[in-house]
Write a protein that binds this DNA or RNA. Structure first.
Lengths: 346, 346
DNA sequence: GTGAAAGCGCTAACAG
DNA sequence: CTGTTAGCGCTTTCAC
């Protein structure tokens, strides 16, 4: 390798490698004059620090590992974007690992990240992995771990999620405020906490507004476009007077919308519709779809901030006492996005 | 750090670190028996290789740097997904750098990647950076460089792009085959090569099918939804007989579609419409939008394969001779996606 | 304010 | 087939 090292610079200036190292790292014990000298020749010799060597010695890589199911999914792409934005500003880089590229690779991912000595790991847990040993391993190694979106409380790691309950509540209340009264819900698989939270938000919003809960108005679906289509069909078959639908995801809402259009049901006049997730296609549907935004970019930013806090705590050596503290959990406020599908023309 | 090292394993087994290293790397000169021993105790002691040290010594990190504008954009997310998919299978990891997080950070990105000693760089050049010095730097350091999508021929790096000309040709010919005869084009900013290529594809497809080119049927727009709306308006104002539109991007097509719907023009009956890019929203428009897919995931896979080839060439030491060769340029075939907006009901 | 020395954990000759 | 030796390039006490 013909790369210039600090030795080369030292030789050039008749000084020592250690002085060069300190100067380049802006160490206080080096005079301004020599610093200037050294920097100049470093630039002149086109010197570039070898971070590998630096990290090996110092124990810090300034790399943070990210573990997500897939960058192919808009939501995660946006989260990564948010993380990198702040990470960059703080001198960190991103090592990306997709756990769901072809099969489940979460264990391998944690392993790889750990081997690379990342300074921390930010992860969204894949599926319902029954085994979380690999994450306990991270904690055992005292590598700061932050979770987002899909979270496991038992891991006792700082985390950032969006308030699904509140989002569903907001969506439902919005429909109520628009004057809809027989509001149905197409729900998602109930053994996922987030979908159950959304169901509860829907129920509570109705209750709080003194609207009776009618089980006929709740369709328990799975999460897909098709499920939305079927949900709309079943609901309308059961009750002709339904005048609004809150769908558990934008995809579900999309399916419902397709069914309603096929049957010439006018939205928002005859039936108001709102989804959840603010997918990229939602603004472009006809009518454009009202929805709840989960603020993925902000989620990424907050996750990284949480990581920084863990680092600070680690540096100040409260490693043992911290076990007692409850890990910080940031709950993001969802944002109501009002579009055509839910605005009753007065 | 309490991490176990190869020394610990060696001590435990009364052997030497080098033997342990070789065994763990499956070196042929170690007996099966000792390999087994060593692996067992490695596992038992919960040993994990320190890649930093390994890389520092061996000169290889098995990390590949990716430079993209933003993971927030679906296209790039999909490309990254494609790269990682193959990279993983070949034992490589991904260090991600987004050049367009807030301003232009391309130079910094290359710098960071180089400092981290990545084994190669796969990049999509941001905007029209007049200065490409940082990329010449990569080549100077003999770090394999692969470009995708946004490519600069002067860099003489292997690259993978999609055939824009062909895609436009296919789109236009598809409209012709559907029986449309007065086919307009809403174009994009002409000083981007790809948009000019699409214009040429459109023109040539008409010529090849003996349809006269009419300058009135070409709207020179910018690239936005709004531009599509305006384009459709202008075109129809100039010529009432237009019966199809090929839009330079799906976003442009979206704008055009919005305008046409507003004016109760039926698609595909009165006007056929096709876009370019296969955005995630396109299947869900009404009518669903026909388009040209750019195969982003495949693009990522091919890019990584190109990187592997560069590595192989580098390893076999043809560094000097290769200067003479033309760098390999993979041109991906675009894929025509036929949906409702362009299928004339016979 | 500067330099000498030691070593982070690993791999790669080279001996044996 | 195994072990010894040397060092990748850097940071970091600790003397001076």
């Amino acid at each position: 390798m013909g790369r210039t090292t600090i030795h080369d610079i030292a030789k050039e200036l008749n000084t020592s490698p250690s002085t060069v190292s300190k100067a380049l790292n802006d160490h206080p014990s080096i005079s301004a004059a020599t610093k200037e000298m050294i920097r100049a020749t470093a630039q002149h010799l086109n010197y570039r620090q070898n971070r590998l060597a630096s990290s090996l010695r110092s124990g810090r890589t300034n790399i943070i590992g990210i573990l997500i199911p897939s960058s192919d999914i808009g939501f995660f792409g946006a989260v990564v974007h948010g993380i990198e934005k702040i990470a960059r500003a703080n001198g960190y880089n991103i090592l990306l690992f997709q756990s769901n590229v072809s099969g489940e690779y979460e264990v391998e991912g944690v392993e790889t990240l750990l081997q690379t000595s990342v300074d921390g790991i930010i992860a969204s847990i894949a599926k319902d992995a029954p085994n979380l040993d690999h994450f306990y391993d991270v904690k055992k190694r005292k590598v700061p771990l932050v979770l987002f979106d899909r979270v496991k409380d038992e891991l006792a790691a700082p985390s950032v999620v969006v308030d699904d309950y509140k989002g569903a509540f907001m969506a439902t209340e919005h429909l109520i405020q628009q004057g809809y009264t027989r509001i149905a819900h197409i729900s998602g698989t109930q053994h996922f906490k987030i979908f159950n939270d959304r169901l509860r938000g829907y129920v509570d919003a109705l209750k709080m507004n003194n609207i009776a809960i009618d089980d006929d108005l709740i369709h328990y679906g799975r999460n897909s476009i098709e499920s939305g289509r079927i949900g709309a069909e079943r609901l309308l078959a059961r009750d002709k007077n339904i005048d609004a639908i809150f769908a558990v995801e934008d995809f579900t809402a999309l399916g419902a919308q397709q069914y309603l259009k096929q049957h010439s049901v006018k939205m928002p006049e005859q039936i108001g519709l709102i989804g959840f997730g603010n997918e990229s296609f939602s603004p472009y549907l006809t009518p454009s779809l009202s929805t709840i935004d989960q603020q993925p970019t902000l989620m990424g930013e907050e996750a990284f901030t949480l990581f920084l806090e863990s680092m600070a705590r680690k540096a100040s050596g409260v490693a043992l006492t911290e076990q007692l503290e409850e890990p910080k959990k940031i709950v993001l406020d969802p944002v109501l996005i009002v579009r055509e599908s839910s605005v009753r023309t007065a």
